[in-house]
Measured scan of single mutants.
Amino acid sequence: MPSETPQAEVGPTGCPHRSGPHSAKGSLEKGSPEDKEAKEPLWIRPDAPSRCTWQLGRPASESPHHHTAPAKSPKILPDILKKIGDTPMVRINKIGKKFGLKCELLAKCEFFNAGGSVKDRISLRMIEDAERDGTLKPGDTIIEPTSGNTGIGLALAAAVRGYRCIIVMPEKMSSEKVDVLRALGAEIVRTPTNARFDSPESHVGVAWRLKNEIPNSHILDQYRNASNPLAHYDTTADEILQQCDGKLDMLVASVGTGGTITGIARKLKEKCPGCRIIGVDPEGSILAEPEELNQTEQTTYEVEGIGYDFIPTVLDRTVVDKWFKSNDEEAFTFARMLIAQEGLLCGGSAGSTVAVAVKAAQELQEGQRCVVILPDSVRNYMTKFLSDRWMLQKGFLKEEDLTEKKPWWWHLRVQELGLSAPLTVLPTITCGHTIEILREKGFDQAPVVDEAGVILGMVTLGNMLSSLLAGKVQPSDQVGKVIYKQFKQIRLTDTLGRLSHILEMDHFALVV
């Protein structure tokens, strides 16, 4: 994948999101292997301009796509893939009243899908469409860049269908997702969380590099694949309309690839034109409109599966009536509230959605109805927002919020430890010299600072030695090549209790 991002070429006709291997024109390309080798690009942008032909009021008969309808489940399912879809609609009884809503608040519980998330729908649909058009064949390999849930859905379907599955996901995604993927037989590649989507090191860039190296491999490409919004247009939206008897006044959905909100909203605009569509985008993402909503100094966020630093091709923002931004604290607070007060075992993005819903639905009156999409299960986040310690460490809970008995030293300040200034190293000294210094002084790690004293990161003896043994660096290389740029900081005025929580999850903390 090139470091400079080429513009994806656009073909003359058809839909841009065809499933299957992508040609340089962004659509299915038939021909000899030699032709494909000559024409197939190194990668295709996940934010390529959409060429979708959908228009409100256009006859369904003019759609270029294969459409399906929700099917009634048999008493005995032939395999677990038949437990994807037909998820329950559940009334939220307490939270709406707590925040003064007059309307009825309903939750579409997508964590009841077989793999635990709304992404099971698009995973199965992308595979079925690729099999139907002859792209996927027995023994082929599926590769997908994902925040985890699409990966789980694909790995689940691949396990049943017999495909090899490789999932490329950023490091910030939970260990629970990784464990589930491994249990399903998927191979996992992790990428830096802070890598831009168009960087060769991003999950998108690495996935395309693997595709170019592995024979008979395919990126189904949830960011561009029409099967993504079509899955929701054909099934999720129809289920909502049936469950609500066609009567709903507002739908609120958090947005990642945009397939969920695009597919549902398009069908609702056709069948229930008075329904307002509300999009939820986390602070630090750029999906919301108008652009002024996205202006923030924050560039990272903890909530998973929603928000991006690019506009995915499948996201149709014209069908969203209003956007709201959400933050991590309210997302996790509301997710825990949904679990504790409503018994809905949902993930953090569901918290984002409901946090926005109780604001947006203030305009609705008694007798009206708001539906929220709860995308995934708490299963993926047992060591994250479900953990009091994690919430404390991230600053989303305060010590006084917890009532468990603490040891005698818990409320003492870090400054009472009488710490001395640490050994520091410059980023320009060599790895070999740094190892000598650390061994001589008896230290395992040291902060790396520039000549102005600005902290650049941390270097550890173990990481340097393993990097040297693996051949990633040489003793003569500058130590700046092996620094940890993500590390926890703590102030002298913070409590030892807070430091204790940090050290339970990290090997060190830097006192500043």
Rank of each mutant, 00 (worst) to 15 (best):
G96W: 08
S202I: 05
P200D: 09
V90F: 01
I80W: 02
A48D: 14
L268N: 00
V189L: 12
E4R: 07
D249H: 06
K36L: 14
K75M: 13
I264A: 03
F197C: 05
Q242L: 14
K94V: 03
K271D: 03
N113Y: 01
H218E: 03
S175W: 09
D133P: 10
L105N: 00
D120G: 05
N216L: 04
P138W: 09
I84T: 11
E144C: 06
P21F: 03
A114L: 06
C15Q: 07
V10M: 14
N93H: 06
E171G: 02
P41T: 13
N194Y: 11
V189T: 10
G116Q: 07
I142L: 09
S63C: 14
A114M: 05
T257V: 01
R45Q: 13
A237D: 07
V10C: 11
K102Q: 15
S227A: 14
T235K: 09
I142P: 01
E128D: 08
V252N: 07
E104N: 09
F111N: 04
I44E: 09
R18A: 14
V189S: 07
S174K: 02
P145L: 01
D133C: 05
A231P: 08
L56N: 09
P88V: 06
K247M: 15
P16H: 06
I167M: 11
E187Q: 09
G31T: 08
E34I: 03
R51V: 07
T260M: 05
F99E: 09
E201M: 05
S32A: 12
N149C: 00
H22E: 12
A157S: 15
T87N: 06
D179H: 08
L154Q: 02
R51N: 08
C52G: 02
G256M: 00
E176A: 07
P273N: 05
E62H: 06
Q242C: 14
D120K: 05
E176F: 01
E187V: 06
S147Y: 00
T236G: 06
R164Y: 12
Q243Y: 07
P41V: 12
T236N: 12
C165S: 05
I84Y: 09
D140M: 06
R182K: 12
C103A: 06
M89D: 05
R224W: 02
N113Q: 07
G96H: 08
A130P: 01
C103D: 00
G14L: 12
P64N: 07
T257W: 00
I143C: 01
G246P: 07
K267H: 07
D79A: 03
A157Y: 09
G57E: 13
K36G: 02
C165G: 15
R196M: 10
R91N: 15
G100R: 05
E239N: 07
K267T: 07
P88C: 08
A38E: 10
G153A: 01
L105E: 00
E62M: 15
I95Q: 00
E40N: 10
A158S: 07
K39L: 15
D221L: 04
P88D: 04
K30W: 06
H218I: 12
K247E: 08
A265S: 13
N212I: 06
E270H: 04
S61L: 08
H232L: 05
H66V: 13
I76V: 04
L28W: 11
H218P: 04
R276H: 12
D129L: 08
I127N: 05
G148P: 00
R276C: 10
W43K: 02
H22K: 01
R276K: 11
E213M: 12
S3L: 12
R190G: 03
A226W: 07
M173V: 04
I84G: 08
K39V: 08
F111V: 03
E239H: 05
L181Y: 04
R182N: 02
P229A: 02
E9C: 14
S254I: 05
P192Q: 07
N194P: 08
I167C: 09
S175F: 12
P2G: 13
Q243L: 13
V255L: 08
S227I: 02
H67D: 02
A48S: 13
C109V: 11
D133W: 12
K119W: 00
A237R: 01
L230P: 05
W208T: 12
L81K: 05
G151H: 00
T87A: 13
G20K: 12
G115E: 07
P215M: 07
S175A: 13
G162N: 04
A130C: 07
P200F: 07
I76M: 12
C244P: 05
I188F: 06
S32L: 09
Q242W: 05
A155P: 04
P192Y: 02
L42C: 09
E37D: 12
